[in-house]
């Protein structure tokens, strides 16, 4: 049994303590925008925000999340895809297959929340999510665009 605050809504879920938060979000809560990619916190497809920090939910046991922790998934990032990162992603036509993009957007929006004008070096350090389609060049450009729009 766990109580989770996801996208501002409280969910009581019946799960074993060791269950990764990713699978609770996907299978119990039913939000499937957060993706499974590797299960070992290497690829970042499962990235969510917990209290504003980007976290890889596939290696985050549900028991480590407190009831008062604020979890935000891609579905709760903004109403109508209005986060500056989402708008910039649309403007640059970033996604190809799109599978990793929830995680990329969560990582990029967490970066921008902390660092209003990230340098290329800051982006290099923060954006370690894998994109097999290779959209990295557009991700970098879109983060710069979003930073300018926010300024």
């Amino acid at each position: 049994m766990a109580r989770l605050n996801i996208n501002g809504k409280v969910h009581d879920v019946q799960v074993e303590d060791g269950t990764p938060l990713l699978w609770v979000i996907r299978e119990q809560v039913g939000l499937t925008g957060t993706k499974y990619g590797c299960g070992v916190a290497q690829c970042g497809a499962c990235s969510v925000h917990i209290n504003g920090e980007v976290r890889r939910s596939c290696m985050t046991p549900v028991s480590s999340v407190k009831a008062e922790d604020r979890i935000v998934t891609i579905e709760g990032l903004s109403p109508n895809s209005s986060n500056p990162i989402q708008k910039a992603w649309l403007e640059h036509d970033v996604p190809q297959c799109g599978y990793c993009q929830s995680g990329q957007i969560m990582a990029a929006s967490a970066l921008l929340a902390k660092n209003k004008n990230p340098s290329d070096k800051d982006i290099d350090t923060a954006m370690t999510n894998i994109c097999r389609c290779g959209t990295y060049q557009r991700i970098r450009a879109a983060i710069h665009t979003a930073a300018k729009a926010k300024a």
Binding site: R26, E27, G30, L31, T32, G33, T34, K35, Y36, T73, I74, E75, L77, S78, S81, Q86, W89, L90, D93, V94, P95, G98, Y99, Q101, S102, I105
Partner: peptide
């Protein structure tokens, strides 16, 4: 021209095969 399939890839609403749900579904 811009791609026609971008918007649902930005907010988690695009359903991939791994995301499918059906009543009574088993895994």
């Amino acid at each position: 021209v811009k791609r026609l399939d971008t918007a649902p890839k930005l907010n988690g609403s695009k359903i991939y095969a791994i995301d499918l749900k059906f009543p009574g579904m088993l895994n």
